[in-house]
């Protein structure tokens, strides 16, 4: 894949960190349900066989030379997609939690509404198996915080199953949070008066491995993201900083 093919070309990106147990199946599922769409796995310096498994399953791989964190990893994908001329990018997690069958619905919504971001949202609460207690509380908390900021409710602000169009790509290529990106990205978009919508999707338990957001990290997550949200609201719009801010 050297360039986007066609005027409204879609790229599926999959950020992955040590996902050799799941990434192969994830890539195969995507290729099965959206054939002819290139799949780009962005490897955040995994210590396992993620890269090999992803390539064997038919994905292109963007290998980061050292660990950047999820946001930096996703942003690398956005930057490449932007440079290659893609019109739409849909992010699918590498752990198998997202269902590739939902990709067409997200793409369709991006195209039909022309809004900048479409979130694949688990409208129905999951049971405790994949969303821990603390995590669930965190999601509820952020719904409350985000509502007045975004001016409309968001059901699943932590979902990583997110589609964006080229206008959002351009913004995110310049400015994207480094660590836990989903919630802050919403605020970044809001500052540009961009629109988002939510589409109901299924979420599965992880295929393999464990979530990187453990209950202990949840608290850190909440403080970190909350700070990020307010920084983004107050942000000085001067010199665009590479990697972060802007």
């Amino acid at each position: 894949m050297n360039r986007a093919s066609g005027a409204d070309a879609l790229l599926v990106i999959v950020p992955a960190l040590n996902e050799e147990g799941a990434i192969g199946e994830v890539v195969r599922q995507i290729r099965q349900h959206v054939p002819d769409v290139p799949v780009l796995v962005i490897d955040d310096c995994s210590e396992d066989g993620t890269i090999g498994v992803a390539r064997a399953a038919g994905a292109d791989v963007l290998p980061l030379a050292h660990h950047l964190g999820l946001g930096g990893c996703v942003q690398a994908g956005y930057k490449l997609a932007y440079e290659l001329g893609f019109e739409y990018v849909i992010r699918v997690d590498g752990d198998g939690q997202h269902d590739a069958r939902d990709i067409p619905a997200i793409l369709e919504r991006l195209k039909s509404t022309g809004c900048e971001m479409v979130i694949g949202s688990r409208f129905v609460e999951e049971n405790g198996s994949s969303t821990g207690m603390v995590r669930g509380l965190g999601i509820r908390f952020f719904r409350m915080v985000l509502r007045p900021i975004l001016g409309k409710p968001v059901r699943d602000p932590t979902s990583g199953f997110v589609g964006v169009n080229r206008r959002a790509l351009e913004v995110f290529a310049r400015s994207f949070p480094l660590e836990y990106p989903e919630i802050e990205a919403l605020v970044v978009l809001q500052r540009r008066r961009f629109r988002f919508e939510e589409v109901p999707v299924k979420m599965h338990p992880r295929l393999a491995g464990r979530s990187t957001i453990t209950p202990r990290k949840s608290l850190y997550y909440i403080v970190h993201v909350l700070l990020g949200v307010f920084v983004n609201i107050l942000k000085y719009d001067g010199r665009p900083r590479p990697g972060r801010g802007g």
């Binding site: 980061l64 690398a76 490449l80 990697g243």
Partner: peptide, 16 residues
């Protein structure tokens, strides 16, 4: 850190 992130992404893209 900012410079380093941007560089790492740039190198990855060039390598790709």
């Amino acid at each position: 850190r900012d410079d380093n992130v941007a560089l790492t992404q740039r190198v990855a893209m060039l390598e790709y």
